[in-house]
């Protein structure tokens, strides 16, 4: 497993494009980007896109596949699930899934140098696992007003300065890129469910339920389709900006020095 992971890492590094080191940003980076963006100019990229997407034809096939999967399978399941389980209970499940993945958030907070956030994750985990009854309640937030921002390994790599590389729309998993794929693989391999005595079916059941539950609470895909002219591009751009914003928030403030 470790060998495969390091091989993927090497491959990913190979494919990363140069944009990584050039774009040193900080908290003001988001505002800077908004002020600097020239809508009337397509820049150096001949296709003009902000996202490097040489696999577009293949990605579009997977995007269509995911679209069918959503409307034919996922949506009916989500609707049935929502009809049976009231939203309060679904929120409890969501808390439970978040609580279980706390160790990953903690690890990535530390790797990104967000020590205060890491401490918050520990407090939340302790409070919610006990007073919150195994993580089903969010007592930390409701009673103590302790909240935290998520953290993942793709984001960590971005904070460290790695570019996003090639855009990939995975079947089932959806929008991603080289960096976040490596991140997801790392997060999944360190996920606490790996250290529990679970069969593969149980593990799939765990992640499947997590997804259906999350879909039922945040139906973002349908909104995206409804309000866009080219859902593939809308999703690609939204994913790119969303991830970039998550990374920019924690990037180092010092711009690179020219030697």
């Amino acid at each position: 497993m470790k060998k495969i992971l390091s091989l993927i890492m090497l491959l990913a590094l190979f494919f990363m494009r140069g944009s990584a080191w050039a774009a040193q940003k900080n908290n003001a980076g988001a505002v800077d980007d908004l002020l600097n963006f020239d809508y009337m100019d397509d820049g150096k990229n001949p296709a003009g896109s902000q996202v490097y997407d040489p696999l577009e034809p293949l990605n579009r096939v997977f995007f269509t596949f995911n679209d069918k999967l959503y409307f034919w399978v996922e949506k009916p399941v989500v609707e049935g699930y929502s009809a049976v389980i009231p939203s309060d209970l679904r929120k409890c499940f969501s808390n439970f899934f978040d609580n279980i993945s706390s160790p990953i958030t903690f690890l990535n907070d530390v790797l990104q140098g967000r020590f205060s956030d890491a401490g918050t994750v520990v407090s939340r985990f302790v409070i919610n696992s006990t007073l919150g009854v195994f993580g089903f309640g969010d007592t930390a937030k409701d009673a103590f007003n302790i909240t935290t921002k998520s953290a993942d390994f793709g984001q960590t790599l971005g904070v460290w300065g790695l570019g996003e590389g090639v855009y990939i729309c995975w079947p089932v998993f959806g929008p991603s890129n080289m960096r976040d794929t490596v991140g997801l693989a790392a997060d999944l391999s360190t996920h606490p469910t790996n250290f529990m005595d679970l069969t593969t079916t149980e593990r799939i059941g765990y992640f499947g339920t997590n997804r259906i539950n999350s879909d039922s609470l945040h139906p973002i895909y349908e909104e995206l389709v409804k309000y866009s002219f080219d859902p593939y591009v809308a999703a690609r751009q939204a994913f790119h900006e969303y991830r970039q914003a998550k990374i920019d928030r924690y990037r180092n403030t010092k711009p690179p020095k020219n030697k």
Binding site: Y39, Q50, F229, D230, A234, Q237, A238, E241, A245, K246
Partner: peptide
Amino acid sequence: GLTLVKNYREQFR
């Protein structure tokens, strides 16, 4: 983090 006009600009292009 999601920019409205920019997103539609990408789609139109």
